[in-house]
Amino acid sequence: MAEPKTQPTDASVEAFLDAAQPARRVEEGHRLDRIMREETGAEPVLWGPSMVGYGSYRYVSPSPTSRTEGEWPKVAFSPRKGALSLYGLKDLPEGAALLPELGAYTEGAGCVYVKRLELVDEGVLRRLIRIAWSREDDRRADG
Rank of each mutant, 00 (worst) to 15 (best):
residue 78 S to K: 07
residue 73 P to S: 12
residue 45 V to T: 14
residue 83 A to S: 15
residue 101 E to P: 02
residue 54 Y to I: 04
residue 67 R to C: 00
residue 92 L to D: 02
residue 55 G to L: 05
residue 40 T to Y: 08
residue 43 E to G: 00
residue 99 L to V: 10
residue 40 T to S: 04
residue 83 A to N: 13
residue 68 T to S: 15
residue 63 S to C: 07
residue 97 A to E: 11
residue 88 G to W: 03
residue 75 V to H: 09
residue 104 A to T: 14
residue 45 V to G: 03
residue 95 G to V: 02
residue 93 P to R: 06
residue 76 A to M: 12
residue 88 G to T: 01
residue 77 F to P: 05
residue 47 W to N: 00
residue 104 A to Q: 15
residue 63 S to D: 14
residue 54 Y to F: 14
residue 85 S to M: 13
residue 58 R to D: 12
residue 95 G to Q: 05
residue 100 P to H: 12
residue 73 P to M: 08
residue 103 G to H: 13
residue 78 S to W: 10
residue 51 M to I: 15
residue 56 S to Y: 09
residue 86 L to R: 07
residue 64 P to F: 05
residue 44 P to Q: 00
residue 66 S to T: 08
residue 99 L to M: 15
residue 96 A to W: 02
residue 62 P to K: 11
residue 71 E to I: 12
residue 98 L to K: 14
residue 68 T to N: 09
residue 59 Y to K: 10
residue 39 E to S: 02
residue 90 K to A: 15
residue 72 W to E: 06
residue 66 S to Y: 09
residue 99 L to N: 13
residue 73 P to W: 10
residue 44 P to S: 00
residue 72 W to T: 15
residue 58 R to K: 11
residue 88 G to I: 01
residue 93 P to M: 08
residue 39 E to A: 07
residue 87 Y to A: 02
residue 104 A to N: 13
residue 89 L to P: 03
residue 68 T to R: 15
residue 50 S to V: 02
residue 81 K to Y: 14
residue 84 L to S: 11
